[in-house]
């Protein structure tokens, strides 16, 4: 039983709560669990020091963790942590660092794990059209999807050791163009409302944005919408050639439900579909389907949400 090393996930400079899910995933694989906190300030590790089921916490302190260079992240972590099977949260940056760390250690990497039975790890393939279970012999580097495991509780007081590390940074940031809108990205939202070609025009996406603002949702789009309208950027695209998402609630408006799109959102906990075509494939995957035009549905939907949440 090899030791398991959980890399705490940083989101905007704080510990992402899904880190507790990673500890639970590590326990499912078996062995002692060490949590490694990449940080610029060791006090950040205090947040995970109370996690249950952890045998050790290591705060790895380095300037590289303030930046985005995955080589810097991987080299700083590699030098500061023990051998064992390593678990990351399956975010865009962490999957990158996971791949690099695996290479440094001559290990294989298994990404986007959604189920663990000992050494058998299951990940979606073809964006969720099927699942693949692999058997891992020896150590590996693993990334685990958020919202799949229930996080461990807290109440313990684990010792925190601090290691100063330096990383090998290879790239140089020239400038960062701040995101123009404060709107959430679909990959980090708990609720997503997406529009398809049935919205009729890109201007009509403002109706989706209004609902999104009421419930704190991100706005997504189908590939058909992105391909048809220049104004709808690819960063909004949900599907096999866009982003794979698993929010608590996914609202599909004017989306027929092409296989491509279904692949990217079918693992959402609850799905609402609004479409005027009763035969649209999306209804077969919806928990709640509304057969109607978006023009007659969204105002009612919006009012009901405002009444409920306002």
């Amino acid at each position: 039983m090899t030791d398991k090393i959980v890399i705490a996930e940083l989101t905007k400079g704080t510990i992402n709560p899904s880190t507790a899910e990673l500890v639970a995933a590590a326990q499912a694989m078996g062995g002692n669990v060490t949590v490694v906190v990449p940080c610029t300030d060791a006090s950040m590790a205090n947040q995970v020091a109370s996690y249950d089921g952890v045998s050790k916490v290591i705060a790895v302190k380095s300037d590289v963790f303030a930046g985005n260079d995955s080589s810097g992240w991987a080299s700083a972590l590699d030098g500061a942590m023990p051998q064992g099977t390593v678990l990351f949260l399956a975010t865009s940056r962490s999957k990158d660092v996971a791949s690099r760390l695996a290479s440094r250690r001559g290990l294989s990497v298994v990404q986007d794990v959604v189920s663990i039975e000992g050494n058998n790890l299951t990940s979606p393939i073809y964006s969720g059209k099927a699942n693949q279970t692999v058997t891992v012999n020896g150590d590996a580097v693993v990334s685990v999807r958020a919202n799949v495991f229930s996080g461990v509780g807290s109440g313990s007081s684990n010792d925190v050791s601090v290691v100063d590390a330096s990383g090998d940074v290879k790239t140089a940031v020239q400038e960062i163009m701040q995101r123009a809108s404060a709107r959430l990205d679909v990959s980090e939202a708990n609720i997503i409302i997406s529009g398809g070609r049935g919205m009729g025009s890109p201007a009509n996406f403002t109706h989706l944005e209004a609902v999104a603002d009421t419930i704190g949702a991100a706005v997504g789009a189908s590939r058909a919408a992105v391909d048809t309208w220049e104004e709808i950027p690819h960063s909004m695209q949900v599907g096999q050639t866009g982003k794979t998402v698993n929010p608590n609630l996914y609202i599909a408006v004017g989306i027929s439900g092409a296989i491509q799109h279904l692949a990217g959102m079918r693992s959402s906990k609850y799905i609402v579909a609004i479409n005027k075509d009763a035969d649209a494939p999306i209804f077969q995957h919806a928990d709640y389907g509304i057969v109607a035009t978006w023009e007659e549905t969204l105002p009612v939907f919006q009012d009901a949400l405002s009444n409920l949440l306002g």
Partner: peptide, 23 residues
């Protein structure tokens, strides 16, 4: 060191509820 054990289909969702009309 990582070998494919098997593939499977994702669990099918139970049928949902469908409503007619925007109201």
């Amino acid at each position: 060191s990582v070998v494919v054990a098997h593939h499977s289909m994702p669990a099918a969702k139970p049928a949902g509820k469908t409503y007619e009309g925007g109201s």
